[in-house]
Design a protein around this nucleic acid. Structure first.
Lengths: 215, 215
DNA sequence: ACCTGAACACCGTTCAAGT
DNA sequence: ACCTGAACACCGTTCAAGT
C-alpha cells in the first residue's frame, strides 16, 4: 500500500495561506482563525506564515481580499439597473457562502485592488444612471453600505432565527405598542425575496439621484 | 497628608463593568477590551467579573446594550420623517462617540431590551408612514441597516482618510476608467452633510413603501 | 531563501480556597 | 455571597539557529 498522504508538499504561498484561513473561518468561525491554526492546517510552523503576511491583521486583510475575489464582474453590456442588481446578488451569495468572514468587509478599510475592482463597477453604473460626477462617491458609499450591510445582517445572526416579536409576549402594550401590533398580524419573518426587494429600493435611490440634475 | 486614593471602593456592579469596558474600547480599541484589562481598571481580579457577566462574549453583548442605551428616544409628537431623522442623527452621534465599540451593533444579534426599544421607534414611524403591517419588518430591517451601516462605515476607517481615488494614479485608464474620471474632477471626499443626505434618501424609501398600498 | 524551535508576554477560564 | 490566587491551555510575536 502507498505511503500515507502528505498533503503539505505544495509550496507555501500567500494564496494557500488565505485559502486555509477562509476554510477555517467557514468551518469553525472567525475566532478559530489563528496564526497557529492556519499554520497547522498547512503542516507548517506558525512563523513560516510571516514571510507572506505581515502579521495577524495582515492575515485578516488578506481574507477580505480573498472574499472580494469571489465576487464576479457582471456582464457590462447589461443596463445599469441589471448590473447593480447582479452585483448585489452575487455579493449576497458570497456573504452566504462565507458568513463568518464576510463582516470583515464592513469593518476593515477597502483599499485593496479587489475593492477597487468592485467599486469601479458601481461607479460606472452610477455614471450611466446620470448621477453627477460630484455626487458619485457619496452615492457609491450609500449603495455599497446598503448592499454590504444588508448581506451581512442577513447572513449573520442579526436577523436571527428568533423573530424580533416572538419575545414580545413579555412586552407590555403601553411600552411597546408597535411590537404588540405586529405580533398579532401573521408574523412574516425574513423571506428569501427580501434581499431582492431591498436591492430594488437601492436602484430606486440611484435613479432618483440620477434624475435630480439631468431631467 | 491623607492616605493615597483608593478608587475602587464602589461596589462591583454590571454597570460599572460595562462602563470600564466601554472606556477601554474608546481609549485603546476593541482589542484592548480583555477580561484582565477591565478587571485591572476596576481594581479587581479577572474572576470577579464572572459574577456579573457570563463570559467574554457576554461582556461584548453587554457593551452593545450599553451603547444602545445612549441612543435617546426622539420626541414622539414629531411627524414620522422628523422622528426617523432625529433617531438617525443620534445613532450617528453615538457611533462617532464610540467608533471602536459601535461595529458590534451590526455584528451581534439585536435581542436585548435596548434593541427592542429602538426598533419600537422605527416600527411606529413606519406605521405612521402608511407602510402595510406585513411590510413593516422588512422595511425596518432595510432602514436600520442603512442607518447602522452608514454610521459604522463613516466612523470606522472604511471611508478612510485616503480617498479611494487618491491611489488611482497607479490605475490604468482601460482597466478602471470610472476611477480615473473621478480622479480628474474636483475630488470631493466625505462631507459632514453626507450622512444627512443619506438619511433623506432613507426617508424617501420609507415614503415610497408607504405609498405603494395607501394611495 | 525559507523554515524551525524555544522563549516571552500575553489571553480566557477552571478550580479550590479564603473571608 | 463575593472575591482571590494559582494553574491550564491557549494566543501573537521575538529572536537565534538550522538547512
Amino acid at each position: 500500500m502507498p505511503a500515507k498522504a502528505s498533503p503539505a508538499r505544495a509550496p507555501l504561498t500567500r494564496a494557500r495561506i488565505l485559502q486555509a484561513a477562509l476554510d477555517l473561518a467557514d468551518e469553525r468561525g472567525l475566532n478559530a482563525v489563528t496564526m497557529r491554526a492556519v499554520a497547522e492546517r498547512l503542516g507548517v510552523t506558525p512563523m513560516a506564515l510571516y514571510a507572506h503576511v505581515r502579521d495577524k491583521e495582515g492575515l485578516l486583510d488578506g481574507l477580505v481580499e480573498r472574499v472580494l475575489d469571489e465576487v464576479p464582474t457582471p456582464d457590462l453590456s447589461l443596463p445599469w439597473q441589471k448590473r447593480l442588481e447582479a452585483l448585489a446578488r452575487t455579493v449576497n451569495d458570497v456573504a452566504n457562502s462565507h458568513p463568518q468572514a464576510f463582516p470583515l468587509l464592513l469593518t476593515r478599510p477597502a483599499a485593496t485592488r479587489g475593492a477597487v475592482r468592485v467599486r469601479e463597477i458601481v461607479y460606472a453604473a452610477l455614471f450611466d444612471a446620470g448621477v453627477p460626477d460630484l455626487e458619485v462617491p457619496r452615492v457609491e458609499r450609500l449603495v455599497s453600505t446598503i448592499a454590504l450591510g444588508y448581506a451581512i445582517s442577513q447572513s449573520t445572526s442579526r436577523f436571527g432565527s428568533r423573530l424580533p416579536w416572538e419575545a414580545s409576549e413579555e412586552l407590555s402594550e403601553e411600552e411597546f405598542p408597535a411590537h404588540i401590533r405586529l405580533s398579532r398580524t401573521a408574523a412574516k419573518g425574513y423571506e428569501a425575496h427580501e434581499f431582492h426587494e431591498a436591492m430594488e429600493s437601492m436602484v430606486m435611490l440611484v435613479a432618483a439621484a440620477g434624475d435630480k440634475k439631468s431631467p
